[in-house]
Design a protein around this nucleic acid. Structure first.
Lengths: 163, 163
DNA sequence: TTTACGGCTGTTATAAGATAACATTATTGA
DNA sequence: TCAATAATGTTATCTTATAACAGCCGTAAA
């Protein structure tokens, strides 16, 4: 049972998660600055809320949180922030859960591929190119040109399996 | 440009689609009989409607069709038939589209992996084991046990790219 | 044959997820 | 400063899906 390359999302909750949040916000800030995008309060706050954990967050849960903080927010407030963050590549949407997780940048320029634990609900990204290569190969066989990939693997992470 | 293994969903609309429908219904009948499941009128009709094409069908579009035929159907009628067909493995849900396609059995016992054309909307399944093997490999590296996979590749099929 | 049971369907209501359309406010750059 | 653009506020609505309970229908034991 290898542990050397264990994604941080699947490590003990003892990891200092504040670091994850701080780094994610810093990456976002940097990214927006370099691309001339406006990292507004709402966008920043939605990203921060999503990064509260490594588990996917629902849009309406974000809305509830925002409402507690500054009354009277409506769905478009959250969905617009999410659209921005998705376009910027700062968060990902998990299609099979209708929920959103922070991008941990593990996939580099490739499409994200998620491992989703059915028990602790943590989501980690598959890092290497092997899966993409296998898919590209199959696509090539039938003359299919890839735009984007949705890959969501559900199961049990090592920690939860161990008990 | 290979064409030998081209999935039927990506072949010209000139393929005799009635055969696809007939075969799908026959497979369903057979499957239900062998497993002691009841292939009722509604279930049969929903499956037949889904097989009208190789493109994914929305639940509420099915509902509209059913309503035309026998007035007064409500969402649970369709969703219950869909649940049955999904459990039986006779249809698949495309998570990224909230829509349903017939199972063409190309994936055998493995999880289905879809190629979805952005232009003609046809959906084909990837047949070989290479992608599953690559994913199993990556999962093993981090001690992750796979329950199921959602793999939906969006792009352009050969026919649409050609013309 | 009758009756009881379980599975299926009907029906009403509502939950959950997302967007359209237009008004208003904030930034930015001329 | 002021016009143009981008972002947010606001109301309404649309799409997708499920809960809860009532009634039906075929099968099989009594």
């Amino acid at each position: 049972m290898s542990t050397d390359a264990l994604p941080i999302a699947f490590t003990s909750h003892a990891h200092d998660h504040k670091d994850c949040v701080r780094e994610a916000l810093a990456r976002a800030e940097e990214h927006c600055h370099r691309h001339g995008l406006r990292f507004t309060r709402i966008r920043r706050r939605v990203l921060e809320l999503i990064w509260q954990s490594h588990t996917p967050t629902k849009a309406y849960d974000l809305l509830d949180r925002i409402r507690e903080e500054r009354g009277g927010a409506a769905p478009p407030t959250v969905y617009r922030a999410l659209d921005f963050l998705l376009d910027a590549g700062l968060v990902h949407r998990i299609e099979s859960l209708n929920a959103f997780v922070g991008c941990d940048a593990a996939h580099g320029d490739r499409y994200p591929k998620f491992l989703i634990c059915r028990h602790c609900h943590a989501v980690a990204e598959i890092a290497g190119p092997a899966v993409d290569r296998a898919i590209a190969n199959e696509a090539r066989k039938v003359g299919f040109t890839i735009d984007r990939e949705t890959i969501e693997i559900r199961g049990l992470c090592q920690r939860c399996a161990a008990g």
